[in-house]
């Protein structure tokens, strides 16, 4: 009787599915979801000094409207945005250009591909240290290198100046992670079928036209993904700033981002006492900012970009 196994009333509970899901679900819940929700929760509670009870949105109101808090919060938010924009507008075009160059099989292209990717696998602490040395006004090679081109008088201690420190750090971050979007673009370019470009060439299109009219539209979805990843990675930028500038994100808070601000608030530094409840509020606000960006991506970009079946 072939039908008896799948008879409706006798269907067994799919216990194997639970068994397979459980380890991942338990670990993920315990170490990611629970801490995330709990850090959001403490943002709604008071300090020991004011009783510690539920205070609703008071901490968020302090963060947005209290002059001391809001000035730092706004500064950190603007700096994070600048950090992100520098990354997007420098990293993405350069990575795209390099990928387009490497996709044409040229000599040494494997070497260049590896060389450009190497910094991405280095420890950030090493990258920060090396760049501090390169840019050091005392030992650094930058002044001498610039001198070769007669530019020595334009050398500045960029990491130490208020006006340039954040841009310099953002460019260090671009340098380090350039290889990752480059590889994504490279893979996408390779997956574009030869027939398309060949057909275009036969129709008389130049290489320039082939790239902008055929390849670029096909790359748009991946450019969107790269921008989204850059947004998530850089609005929460912390490590490079902390490694070079420490928790005070000097000079004069000019490199202070949402995450260094969170670190100072939550863990304290020097005489500044740890303030977990305000730290929770900063984390919550950052979460909302990140979510808003991701939502904008899905509603404004992904719905409009056309993907082609190749």
């Amino acid at each position: 009787m072939p039908g008896s196994v799948s008879a409706p009333g006798k269907r067994r509970f799919p216990i194997h599915i639970v068994v397979f899901i459980a380890p991942g679900a338990v670990i993920y819940t315990l170490f990611l979801i629970y801490p995330l929700l709990d850090s959001l929760r403490i943002g709604f509670f008071g300090n020991e000094t004011d009783g510690g009870g539920f205070v609703g949105f008071r901490n968020y109101a302090l963060l947005l409207f209290d002059p001391d808090w809001s000035e730092r919060f706004r500064g950190a938010f603007v700096n994070s945005l600048i950090f992100f924009f520098i990354n997007v507008f420098v990293q993405t075009p350069v990575a795209l250009m390099l990928a387009a160059l490497l996709a044409n099989k040229t000599r040494f292209s494997t070497f260049y591909r590896t060389a450009i990717f190497v910094p991405a696998v280095l420890s950030l602490v090493i990258v920060a240290f090396v760049w501090q040395l390169i840019l050091s006004p005392v030992w650094g090679v930058s002044r001498d290198l610039m001198g070769l081109f007669g530019l020595a008088q334009f050398f500045q201690p960029w990491l130490g100046l208020q006006e340039t420190a954040l841009t310099t750090l953002a460019l260090i971050s671009v340098w380090q992670f350039l290889g990752i979007p480059m590889m994504l673009f490279y893979a996408a370019l390779l997956s574009i079928p030869e027939e398309l470009t060949e057909a275009a060439r036969i129709d008389g299109a130049s290489s320039w036209n082939v790239f902008w009219d055929i390849k670029f539209p096909l790359l748009l979805p991946i450019i969107g993904i790269v921008t989204l990843l850059t947004y998530i990675g850089n609005m929460s930028a912390f490590d490079v700033i902390f490694a070079v500038k420490g928790p005070l994100a000097g000079p004069n808070f000019s490199t202070d981002t949402l995450m260094t601000f969170f670190y100072r608030t939550f863990f304290g530094t020097g005489f500044q006492q740890p303030n977990p409840v305000m730290g929770g509020a900063v984390a919550g606000a950052t979460f909302i900012i990140l979510m808003a960006g991701v939502a904008a991506y899905f509603f404004l970009w992904q719905r409009r970009v056309r993907s082609y079946e190749l």
């Binding site: 501090q132 840019l135 050091s136 006004p137 005392v138 030992w139 050398f155 500045q156 201690p157 960029w158 990491l159 130490g160 100046l161 000079p251």
Partner: peptide
Amino acid sequence: LVQGYQGVSYPD
């Protein structure tokens, strides 16, 4: 101070 002192660290 050292030239470029704004970028000179404590160990330097």
